[in-house]
Amino acid sequence: MARCPHKLSIPSRTSQLARVRRAVASWAAEAGLSSEEASALQCAVDEACANAIEHGYGGKPNGTVDVEAKLKADVLVVTVRHHGKPFDPKQHQLAALTDIRSQRRKHGYGLHLIHKLVDDVRFKASGHTSEVRLTKRRDGTANGD
């Protein structure tokens, strides 16, 4: 990744999610992730940004979501930050996926999807800033190395 880290700030509007996905795809390609790895990371970042917009800012469009990508050895780390309602994972017991499905719930799949798509997920809240750090391992085959 020649220009590292990459940063993108978007207004807290879901219409901006496609822009985030384009940026992540570009960063992932530059970092040498395979197409499958890039797609997985793209979706995980999309979910994290959607959560920031819908839960962090309650859907209000006047907030900012910051997305930053750093390449570290064989992993690409993408951090999503917002400055809305703090998210403390200790206060949110993740409902079992089987329960969510059996209840035919419309919501509740995003965090499960994030955990399945990337290799590591870390949450951090400090003051008015909440962040989720998503780590995707590069398998080293995308560039034949």
Binding site: G110, H112, L113
Partner: peptide, 8 residues
């Protein structure tokens, strides 16, 4: 492309 919102 589909995200969890679409699945929901």
């Amino acid at each position: 492309y589909i995200s969890s919102a679409g699945l929901g």
